[in-house]
Design a binder for these strands. Structure first.
Lengths: 176, 176
DNA sequence: GAGTCAAGTTCATTCATTGAACCTATGGGC
DNA sequence: GCCCATAGGTTCAATGAATGAACTTGACTC
């Protein structure tokens, strides 16, 4: 929404936030980044997004300081996009949106669980731990597949996301 | 996003939620509805949204059970769109998004404060009361103008939103 | 030297958004 | 009865963004 008409003059923090993450695909990219996706091709495969749109979104998210683009440490000619602190701060929003989607439109079979790894308690509405009381550091959030999740997805990124794993833990795709 | 390509097969509650509230303008309409806007023309004036888009979004939000359309009790020929329980459940998401926008892109002068009316404490990141511990019922949330807010806005809806008021309290525009 | 792979860019088509103009039903003033 | 205003839309042409397929570029590999 940065291009063309924007939400200028709305005098509202929500509108300002939506200028950055309100476009189609953008929040899903941030979600994937929090789940550990880092590489252009992995976003591409997992989201099924057109290449041109992905490139544009990664660029604008980088400009906005939500992601950081940097050379991949292992293979120097590759890049990775890593969530910054500002990007991590979107996790409570995404958690709230996800619980809303689940409660409002789910069929009773959760797709994923998010637990505080230290105590095993499922996160509350907005990513806090009801038992320990407080926002759980992202590194301590464990995501697990729920009964509603496709147990044998086609694309390798979804497959890598199946197992219990931590938020932010980089996805690695085994070269076949 | 309901039309054309959608986020089908994403197998994710966030994607499902975005199918309903992810389009341009949609979350701003829900925000206004939570702030007490109820009438077509008030949304129109406050958001500066094209008429056709507003009509389409009100329709799809009504279809999704986020808003309810009903005849206005005072003037029987008018309608109002009122947030349902499902719509109210979006408040923590919007609060989280707003605090993110404020913290990430604000200039230090908050635009609005949201307080728990019973104790005067400012709401936390996601609409809970840090003092009382728990989600505050929307009717008990008081919104107040902050130092960053335009103190003399042009449109009557913004003017009606200036004073300290409760969430959901219907906006009334005095006929000039 | 031919082939591959990551990470894009280019381009024609399709789709959504925009802003202006028009429509319709009611209600009020005279 | 006639004129005008208001609420809540619909229609339409022009613009802008999204899509999918094809093409590009610069390593590295066999």
């Amino acid at each position: 929404m940065a291009l063309g008409k924007d939400y200028v003059a709305q005098d509202c923090s929500i509108a300002r936030a939506l200028e950055v993450v309100g476009e189609r695909w953008t929040l899903l990219i941030v979600r994937d980044a929090l789940y550990g996706v880092r590489r252009y091709n992995d976003f591409l495969v997992h989201l099924g997004i057109p290449r041109a749109v992905l490139a544009a979104r990664l660029q604008s998210l980088t400009d906005a300081g939500v992601l950081e683009k940097r050379p991949c440490p292992e293979a120097p000619r590759r890049h990775e996009y890593v969530v910054t602190e500002r990007g991590r701060a979107l996790w409570p929003t995404l958690r709230a949106l996800g619980t809303w989607g689940r409660d409002a439109f789910g069929d009773g079979k959760p797709l994923r669980y998010f637990r505080h790894a230290a105590c095993g308690t499922e996160l509350g509405l907005t990513a806090e731990c009801p038992a320990c009381g407080g926002l759980v550091p992202l590194e301590d959030v464990e995501m697990l597949p729920g009964p509603g999740l496709d147990a044998d997805p086609a694309d390798p990124v979804s497959r890598a996301m199946l197992g219990p794993r931590r938020l932010l833990q980089p996805i690695r795709i085994d070269p076949v």
